[in-house]
């Protein structure tokens, strides 16, 4: 052991490797020698698509211990060929940003502050308000007796950042509920 330790001494390594100025292999630390990129130590790499603009660049999402540790371009993509812009390159921060909200917040009428709500309770409250507003603002027909079958009391804005499947459920549910004022960024 002692002998090996002695051989690990930088000055000995400098002499033994010929790196007398101590600039190369003789000075690498154990940590340096053990380096491995987190892309190679990740548990898995998942193919994804950048969430910002509509170019649709391919991304690879590296996951370690169920946390996203790295997002970078997918070289397989014929659209982006592995490249990303600054926003796409910041995607990992979008996911893991300390500023991100992960709890439900609720502001009561006239209140000056947020409070917490249980997620299930919040969805239930939204459902109640949805049903109540729909009843209160229902328009069965117009002045000439033509069918309207709708509410103008509920509106929605958003969808351009969401998945096709999500837009589909949003449009389907709102339309069935008679809410027509469903809009997104495509109008803007």
């Amino acid at each position: 052991m002692a002998r090996r330790s002695f051989l690990q001494w930088p000055v000995v390594r400098q002499v033994s490797t010929g790196d007398l100025l101590g600039r190369g292999p003789s000075v690498t630390s154990p940590r340096t020698k053990a380096l491995a990129p987190r892309t190679s130590t990740a548990d898995r790499a998942v193919q994804s698509v950048c969430p910002y603009c509509a170019v649709g660049c391919g991304q690879r999402v590296y996951v370690k211990d169920e946390k996203v540790v790295q997002i970078e371009g997918d070289p397989d993509s014929p659209i982006s060929r592995g490249r990303l812009c600054p926003k796409g390159s910041a995607s990992e921060q979008l996911v893991n940003s300390p500023g991100r909200q992960t709890r439900v917040l609720y502001r009561a009428p006239r209140s000056t502050r947020w409070e917490h709500l249980d997620l299930a309770a919040a969805i239930d409250m939204v459902a109640d308000r949805f049903i109540e507003t729909r009843r209160r603002t229902w328009q069965q027909e117009d002045a000439e007796g033509r069918l309207l079958s709708r509410t103008m009391g509920i509106a929605s804005l958003g969808g351009a950042t969401l998945d096709n499947e999500e837009n589909y459920l949003i449009k389907k549910l709102f339309t069935a509920a008679g809410a027509v004022q469903i809009e997104n960024q495509a109008r803007i």
């Binding site: 380096l35 491995a36 990129p37 892309t39 190679s40 970078e72 371009g73 592995g82 490249r83 990303l84 812009c85 796409g88 390159s89």
Partner: peptide, 18 residues
């Protein structure tokens, strides 16, 4: 990106450059 080169990966900046 020494820690990428050892695994034969392109440095992050060059890989991203559009």
């Amino acid at each position: 990106c020494y820690d990428r080169l050892i695994a034969d990966e392109t440095p992050a900046c060059a890989k991203a450059c559009p």
